[in-house]
Design a protein around this nucleic acid. Structure first.
Lengths: 359, 359
DNA sequence: TTGAAAGCGCTAACAT
DNA sequence: ATGTTAGCGCTTTCAA
C-alpha cells in the first residue's frame, strides 16, 4: 500500500501469441528473424504486438542466445579529451551494427580497470580496449574469454588498431625542419607508454631521413604538469624547435616558458600531438598532429563485430590509420641557430631530469 | 581445422552443486543471499566454485529477478567537459552500490536521446537523466517505466538534483561588485535552457540585493562561438563586468575582445560558469563558478538507488547542491565607470542580436 | 538449513 | 510456414 505509481508489467510473446492466435515461436521469429515467417502473419503479429505494447526482453534473449548485443569500450580516463572522438566513433559504429556500448572508465588505475572489466565481461559480447594500463599477458588472458580489439596499442596476437605514430612525428619534424629548426627537442611521454615508444622511434628514423637532429627529453607525465617539468629541463639546453608527446604536455611547456619571458613561436616553435579540443583554445593556438580518433574507434568496432560474428581474430600486423598535421600559431620560422634566452648565462636551473612536477 | 582459440564454456550452479554435493538452490543462495545458508556449507561451496572458476551469470540472474544492476546515465554531449566529473561521480557511487553504469551520449539530439534511451530502458534498473533535450512530458513518460532522477534540471514530479544556480551567479555578481563593476552584462545561454533561466533569475534578485545593475545579452549558443557572438553584441554597449552563461562562452568572449585589442581583465573583467578543465588553461585563467559536479552525480545515484530499492519517488523540491566561486586572473578592479574601447566612437558594429555565430 | 521443482521470456531444434 | 517442446542459468516458493 501507499504505493507510488506502479510500473506496468510488460506483455510477453505468449500474450502476443494468444492475442494473434499463433504459437509463441512464431511471434519470436517475427522479431528475431523476420523473413522466416509469412509476411501476412508477420504483419498481423506486429500489429497485435504494437497494440499490446510488446517489447522484446533483451535479458531473456541474451540468456537464450548468449549474446547481449552489448560491447564494452574501456578507456583509461574519460577526462582525457583524446577519447572524445574515439568514444563517438565507437558509439556510432556500434549503433549501426546493432550494438549498445558499455563505456568503462578505468581512471588510469590498474585495479579499477580490472574490476570494471570483471563486471563488464560477463554481460558483453566483446571488448574494445583503449590504451590499457594492463600488461600484455593480462590482456591476452581476457581476450581468451571474449572477442577483443586493442586500440592505440598493438598487442601481439590481438587484433589492434593504431594511429600512424611514425608518420605523425615525421610530419611534425618535417614541418619544423622546413621552418629552419635544427636541432629539435622531443618532450617524451611516460616510459611505459607504447605510443611514446612508437613516436620516439619514428622521430629517430625521420631525423635521419630529413637530416634534422633530434634530442629526447623525459620521461614526462602526459599532462600539463609534465610539460612544465619538461620546460624546466629544456632551459638547460634550449632548442628553437620542440615536439611534445601530446597536446597537454605542449600546453604545459608553453605556459612555463612564456612565464620565463620566452616567446612562442618567436623564440620557440612547439608542436603538440593529438589535436585535442583545448589545442585551439590556448594562446598561441597549437600546431599539432591530428589523429583520426573517430575513424580509429569505428575501425575497432568493425573488427570486433566481425570477430563476434565468428571471424577468426587476426593477430597479424595492426591496422594503421593515417594522421595529419594541423598548422596553427605555435610554430614559425626559426629565429636562428639557438634560441635567445632572456636569463641565459647566470640563471640557475635544476640539474636533474625529469624535474619534479609539483612546480 | 583453422579454428581460432575456443572460448571456454562456463560452469553453472549445477556443476558447482554436483561437485559440492548439494542442491543447485543452495549454491544459488550462497551467492545471492549469503546468511541464508550454513556458513560451513557456504565455505565449501565457495571453495568448489572457485576451483571450477564459477562466475554467476548476470543475464540469467537478471531474467529471474528482473533486475540487471545496470543504470543508465544520459548526457547530451560527452564532449562537454562539464560532464566529466558528473560521470565520475555517478560511476563511483554506482559501483559502491553494486551497479554498473551504461553511459549514453545523446549528442544534443532529441532523436538520438530517444533511440538510445529506447535501447537502454529495457536493460537498466533506473536512469540518471542529465540535462535532457526532451520535453518535461516525454521525461515523465519514461519515468513511468523506470525509476529516474533528473540532473541539472528540475522536472516536476521527478526527483531532481541541481546545483545552486542562484547562489552561483550571486557570488559572481558579488565578486564583480566588490571590484567596482557596475553595470554588469550577463551573456545568456540558450533560450530553452533551464539552467539559464535559473541563473538569470538569480542574477536579477542578486542585482537588487547588491545594488549592482545587470543587463542581459542573448540568447547565445552555449559554446565558444556563442561567446564570440556575444562579444560582438557587447561592443555596442560595453560594460566593465561580464558574467557568462558558461566557461565556453566566456572563453569565446575573451578571445573575441582580445582580438579587438581590449584587455582582460584590464578593460573587462569576465567570470565564467562551471569551472571546466580548460578554464585553467586559457589566458588569462578564468575566474568562474565551480559547480560540484561529482557530488551532483553521486547524489543523483543515491536517490536513484533508493528508488530502485523501493523508495517512493519524491517529487518535492529538487535537491540543491552548493557551488563556489573560483577566483583566477580574468577579473580585476574596474578601470572606471565605463570601459575604454580602443575603437569606440567611429567603429561600426552589427546591430542585430544575437549576431550570427559563424564569425 | 537444505532440497525439489516451477518458472523468468526467449530461442532453436525438430515435427508437422 | 508454423507449432511443439526443450532448454538458457538463475531465483524462489514450498516442503521436508
Amino acid at each position: 500500500m501507499a504505493s507510488g505509481q506502479r510500473r506496468r508489467i510488460s506483455p510477453t510473446i505468449y500474450d502476443v501469441a494468444q492475442a494473434a492466435g499463433v504459437a509463441p515461436s512464431t511471434v519470436s521469429r517475427t522479431f528475431s528473424r523476420p523473413g522466416r515467417v509469412n509476411s501476412e502473419t508477420a504483419d498481423r503479429i506486429r500489429k497485435v504486438a504494437a497494440e499490446l505494447g510488446y517489447r522484446t526482453n533483451p535479458m531473456a534473449r541474451a540468456l537464450a542466445t548468449t549474446h547481449s548485443s552489448l560491447i564494452a569500450l574501456v578507456v583509461p580516463d574519460i577526462t582525457n579529451p583524446v577519447y572524445f572522438e574515439i568514444i563517438n566513433g565507437v558509439q556510432d559504429e556500434a549503433a549501426e551494427a546493432g550494438y549498445t556500448v558499455l563505456l568503462v572508465d578505468s581512471r588510469e588505475s590498474d585495479k579499477r580497470e580490472r574490476e570494471a572489466l570483471e563486471r563488464a565481461l560477463p554481460i558483453v559480447d566483446g571488448i574494445v580496449l583503449g590504451t590499457s594500463r594492463m600488461s600484455d599477458a593480462s590482456i591476452r588472458m581476457i581476450a581468451k574469454q571474449k572477442p577483443m580489439v586493442a586500440l592505440n596499442r598493438a598487442v601481439r596476437e590481438i587484433p589492434s588498431v593504431v594511429p600512424d605514430n611514425a608518420r605523425g612525428v615525421r610530419r611534425a619534424l618535417e614541418h619544423l625542419g622546413e621552418l629552419g629548426h635544427d636541432p629539435v627537442t622531443y618532450l617524451a611521454g611516460p616510459e611505459a607508454s607504447w605510443a611514446d615508444g612508437m613516436r620516439w622511434r619514428g622521430l629517430r628514423e625521420a631525423s635521419l631521413e630529413l637530416s634534422v637532429h633530434v634530442r629526447r627529453l623525459g620521461p614526462l607525465s602526459p599532462n600539463v604538469a609534465g610539460g612544465v617539468a619538461g620546460a624546466k629541463a629544456w632551459m638547460l639546453a634550449p632548442t628553437s624547435g620542440v615536439i611534445a608527446y601530446n597536446d597537454l604536455v605542449a600546453i604545459g611547456f608553453i605556459r612555463a616558458v612564456q612565464g620565463r619571458g620566452i616567446g612562442v613561436p618567436s623564440d620557440v616553435s612547439v608542436v603538440g600531438y593529438d589535436n585535442i579540443f583545448a589545442a585551439d583554445l590556448v594562446s598561441p593556438a597549437l600546431t599539432t598532429v591530428a589523429t583520426p580518433r573517430r575513424a580509429l574507434g569505428a575501425a575497432a568496432v568493425r573488427n570486433l563485430v566481425a570477430q563476434i560474428k565468428g571471424a577468426h581474430p587476426r593477430g597479424g600486423p595492426p591496422v594503421v590509420v593515417p594522421v595529419k598535421l594541423v598548422e596553427r600559431a605555435s610554430t614559425a620560422e626559426a629565429p636562428g641557430a639557438a634560441v635567445r634566452l632572456p636569463h641565459s648565462g647566470g640563471h640557475t636551473v635544476p640539474d636533474i631530469l625529469p624535474a619534479p612536477e609539483n612546480a
